[in-house]
Write a protein that binds this DNA or RNA. Structure first.
Lengths: 183, 183
DNA sequence: GGTGATTGTTCCAGTCAGGAACACTACTCT
DNA sequence: AGAGTAGTGTTCCTGACTGGAACAATCACC
């Protein structure tokens, strides 16, 4: 069928399957709203690079700027939809990759004062709370359009997953803090 | 003091603080054993690139291959230790980045049959189990050298963190599967 | 003494992030 | 009307990093 693309291509292509067409700028915004929590939100420059590549492969098409539009909107093509579906069905998913700066720092905690490691974890708790609030807001915005069969059913499920993940991490950190106190 | 380096540099530098000197190859192995679970294990090529950079900054030094040694071993310098400690103490950690192919696929689950999404999650459960076993083994290998004050105290804490994270994810996936069945 | 696995290192093409730069539109304040 | 500021929209460049290929030396084993 079609050669392999980087996962980011499929991710952005997927963001175009919710029924509307977007400019590169808008696509980046959508990535910031959703993709960011489970993948990465590609850099602006990368979004445009991907749109070019997807266009070259015929997976998206740009609707040229009309007289009243100053920029081009991209929409997924039938071929794009087919390719994306085939990717979902055939390509086995990789195991998740976690880049966790806090865990990394704790790993070499023997270099610093234990108090510092505790402060690190406490600050991470605060960051988790902030991140949770952001995701909660996204989840709220899907409310009412997420019943089985509706458009935002799956985004909503994934948002719930994300919220539980954040809650779980908080619990773990709190336990770690207790263990660090036992000295 | 010293200019900023990419996080990967500090991560590899950190792996050299456990009291031994390593070849690039051995450093990669250590990264595969530990770093992989909370960060990324850099590609071989990247390990050597980092060692060059760290050497150029005077943060590690290569002990030239003796007559009986065929390759050079790297060790952290005093300056390296100071720089790493300063980084730990001063640079605020970024929020973790998660690249989760399974969550990404579930996000656009409306493109495929619901049965397929369920199979996706079930396969992920199996992958989680496998990953957990790997990490469990690492954790076991630290046993007995991880009391407060000992060398592997912190790696051990982080391994426990990782294990709990994997367990938490399993619980979440199981709940998601139940919700997907309710249709 | 051969053969395959492990150790050890280098090179290259391509992916990607992040920031700077640029331009145009829209809004408010004066 | 003009000035300032925020948001929209896009491009370019540098450097980080991956993954794979290629290569060589050593070790274990039969």
């Amino acid at each position: 069928m079609s050669q392999d693309l980087p996962t980011t291509s499929y991710a952005l292509l997927g963001l175009l399957t919710f029924g509307d067409d977007l400019t590169g700028y808008e696509l980046k915004q959508r990535a910031d709203r959703t993709l960011r929590f489970y993948w990465v939100s590609p850099a602006m420059s990368q979004v445009y690079t991907e749109l070019e590549r997807l266009t070259a492969h015929g997976l998206v098409s740009a609707r040229a700027a009309g007289p009243n539009q100053r920029s081009s909107k991209y929409s997924i093509t039938a071929k794009g939809r087919r390719t994306l579906t085939a990717w979902l069905e055939d390509a086995p998913p990789e195991f998740p990759v976690l880049k966790h700066p806090v865990a990394l720092r704790l790993l070499i905690g023997h270099l610093v004062d234990p108090e510092h490691s505790k402060a690190l974890l406490r600050e991470h708790l605060a960051a988790l709370t902030a991140r949770r609030a952001e995701l909660e807001q996204v989840r709220e915005s899907l409310h009412g359009r997420d019943a089985p069969g509706e458009a935002f059913r799956y985004p909503s499920l994934v948002a719930d997953w994300g919220l539980e993940y954040l809650d779980g991490e908080r619990t773990i950190i709190e336990k770690l803090l207790l263990r660090l106190d036992e000295e």
